[in-house]
Design a protein around this nucleic acid. Structure first.
Length: 618
DNA sequence: TTCCTAGCGTCGGTGTGTGC
DNA sequence: GCACACACCGACGCTAGGAA
């Protein structure tokens, strides 16, 4: 029940003017400690939502039930179940916070588009999944071991004089370079220069991207701020969205480009490198509203500088002002903290030092604009029939709106992919535009499909209905008791860096060493279980509940051990050098190699024989 | 200052399903 | 039976930031 609620319904509850602590985004993102990251609500938070409370209270409810039956089950199982419940409780709350942040941070895009002037633009940045070389006819052996081509997508949205939005997409295919801040800085600079040449009236842009490390890093932010005056178009804001959200437009454009490339390849062409990739993208007039270029960024030119911005991981919104960067933890919550220019100014990140981009093949001629965004009057069913865009932030949402088109065509087949949004479109283009604006119409129905399902079921099963009501009532009662000031509950919690105990490390190192000898791969889930059950010769537990590690932690630690051992081997390993050898030496070498191979073969054969014997108990 | 842990994204290997 | 498509998952790279 909680799972379904979180997946489909929770986001429909959220609102910044709600009187419930679980729903009010301003309350959830107001820092209780630092007033600069807090905003005051003009309403009281007196109401409570039973369903939202259930997220926090479901695990305590299970814990109570566990305590009731704990006398009948072994202590070890009770301890393990308690450990699992603790982890689940934390994960559930984290998930709830993630949904809250996703919805709130997406308002940045909606508001920017709502207030966009004709001399401003919104740029959404994203790295597309690396493109794997594609052959018209390829064998399976060719399919494996491919090295992908990096390509970066930038979508520019501008507003025309007649209140329509224009979209233009820029693809940077990287011949050279990694997906780090240095490449991103070069791409942004090249992009802004290019946009200025085609749209001279543009004066400022708002950047938006996901939380990837190459975007959300001190060096890039400091570079933008320090050199903003030299950019052909000023960067006004940089808003970050939660992981895996807020880049729908880039994703849909990536899909179109991929399909265009595959279509070109399927006509008998091979797309094996950046040149052929650009050729494919430009084929048959190119992808509508999309331009591609090939660039190269030499990683060796990257300035080796380290700029400090304490607390950067908690900041999501940055405004670039003359006297510093105004950083906020959540969009439009609080006045923000000013990061002064002098604290992060560095010669090493000047435009001259950073802008080393080499354009190998420039953008082709300007493609036609991919489409005009008209305004839509009806918030539920959007179409382009001389209607107005629904960019109003708090517009009223029709109660119980149905996913049935009322437009004259009665052919509304394109539903918004967001399960909680009830908008339906007559054409795929309209859906595309809806995704660009991101103005989802979340259902405000008090009765969800889950509720309806429960009601139908409960009508034939009265007992189940009673049980369901009891669970919710008991859960909400629990929460009411425990409620105290939860201000800022939606903010990212501070990461607790806890060192793994030495004896756990030693234990894992031994297991890692034995795996290395046997060649077997460690099973992280089994190891996590093993840590909980390991005992000494007297039958006492080796590790306490505080020392248990979960599978991802074990995986990370073992990966670290392997990585270190590899790097130390690389250092110790003498460098192989090519030397001329005479024929006699060469023959001796061949003999040695043959002998080593024979030894290996014999060892393997003995191993196989032993395994067979042990399998048949001989 | 260095080391270690965590988070996010991408790459490559592997297993399974499908069509010819 | 072969070649390809797709999903899953572990490995790894990059980055931030706290502990030692």
């Amino acid at each position: 029940m909680v799972n379904t609620f979180m997946k489909f319904e929770y986001k429909t509850h959220l609102h910044k003017l709600d009187g419930c602590e679980d729903h009010c985004t301003v309350f959830a993102f107001s820092d209780p400690v630092d007033a600069k990251f807090a905003a005051a609500c003009e309403h009281l938070h007196e109401s409570s939502c039973q369903k939202c409370s259930l997220v926090e209270s479901c695990v305590p409810q299970i814990r109570i039930k566990l305590n009731d039956i704990s006398t009948n089950i072994p202590d070890q199982i009770v301890v393990e179940l308690t450990y699992e419940l603790d982890n689940s409780e934390k994960n559930l709350v984290d998930w709830k916070k993630h949904i809250l942040r996703t919805i709130h941070q997406d308002q940045a895009r909606t508001n920017v588009l709502k207030n966009l002037h004709v001399d401003q633009g919104l740029v959404i940045l994203d790295w597309a999944m690396k493109f794997l070389p594609y052959q018209f006819r390829e064998t399976q052996s060719d399919f494996f071991g491919k090295k992908g081509i990096s390509w970066h997508i930038s979508c520019l949205v501008t507003k025309s004089d007649n209140d329509e939005f224009d979209r233009q997409c820029y693809v940077h295919i990287l011949e050279n370079g990694s997906q780090g801040w240095f490449s991103v800085a070069n791409i942004i600079l090249h992009l802004l220069t290019n946009i200025k040449s085609t749209r001279p009236t543009l004066k400022a842009v708002f950047l938006k991207s996901d939380y990837a490390a190459c975007y959300h890093c001190t060096n890039l932010l400091a570079f933008i701020h320090q050199n903003n005056g030299q950019f052909s178009i000023k960067v006004a804001e940089y808003n970050f969205s939660e992981a895996q959200s807020g880049k729908d437009l880039c994703d849909s454009k990536t899909g179109s480009c991929r399909m265009h490339i595959y279509k070109y390849a399927n006509e008998g062409h091979d797309v094996l490198n950046s040149r052929s990739m650009k050729l494919a993208l430009d084929s048959y007039g190119g992808v509508k509203g999309t331009q591609a270029c090939i660039v190269s960024v030499n990683a060796e030119d990257e300035p080796k500088t380290k700029i400090r911005m304490p607390g950067i991981s908690t900041y999501n919104n940055f405004n670039f002002e003359n006297d510093g960067i105004i950083a906020k933890k959540a969009y439009k919550v609080g006045e923000g903290h000013v990061i002064k220019t002098s604290t992060q100014c560095s010669e090493t990140i000047s435009v001259e030092r950073v802008y080393k981009l080499e354009v190998l093949d420039p953008f082709s001629q300007d493609q036609p604009i991919s489409g005009k965004l008209h305004k839509f009057a009806d918030s539920r069913i959007e179409d382009t029939h001389d209607q107005q865009p629904c960019l109003e932030e708090n517009q009223p949402i029709a109660e119980n709106s149905m996913n049935i088109s009322t437009c004259s065509t009665s052919s509304a087949y394109f539903c918004c992919p967001d399960f909680s949004c009830d908008k339906v479109f007559a054409t795929s283009n309209n859906l595309d535009r809806h995704l660009l604006i991101g103005n989802h119409n979340y259902r405000k129905n008090t009765i969800s499909s889950m509720d309806t399902a429960v009601q139908i079921y409960s009508s034939s099963c009265i007992d189940l209905q009673k049980y369901h009501e009891n669970v919710i009532q008991e859960a909400s009662h629990e929460v009411e008791i425990s409620v105290n000031s939860r201000k800022g509950w939606g903010l990212k919690s501070k990461r607790a860096n806890v060192r793994f105990p030495d004896k756990v490390k030693t234990y894992l190192q031994e297991i890692c060493a034995s795996c290395e000898k046997t060649g077997s791969r460690p099973d992280f889930i089994a190891l996590s279980e093993e840590l909980r059950k390991a005992t000494d010769e007297n039958g006492h537990k080796l590790f306490t509940i505080q020392e248990w590690l979960n599978p991802p932690q074990i995986k990370g630690y073992i990966a670290n051990i392997i990585s270190k051992s590899k790097s130390s081997l690389a250092v110790k390993k003498p460098r192989a050098e090519l030397q001329e050898v005479n024929v006699d030496d060469d023959e001796k070498l061949s003999e040695v190699v043959a002998m080593l191979e024979m030894n290996d073969f014999n060892a393997n054969a003995v191993g196989i024989v032993n395994e067979v014997f042990s399998a048949v108990n001989i």
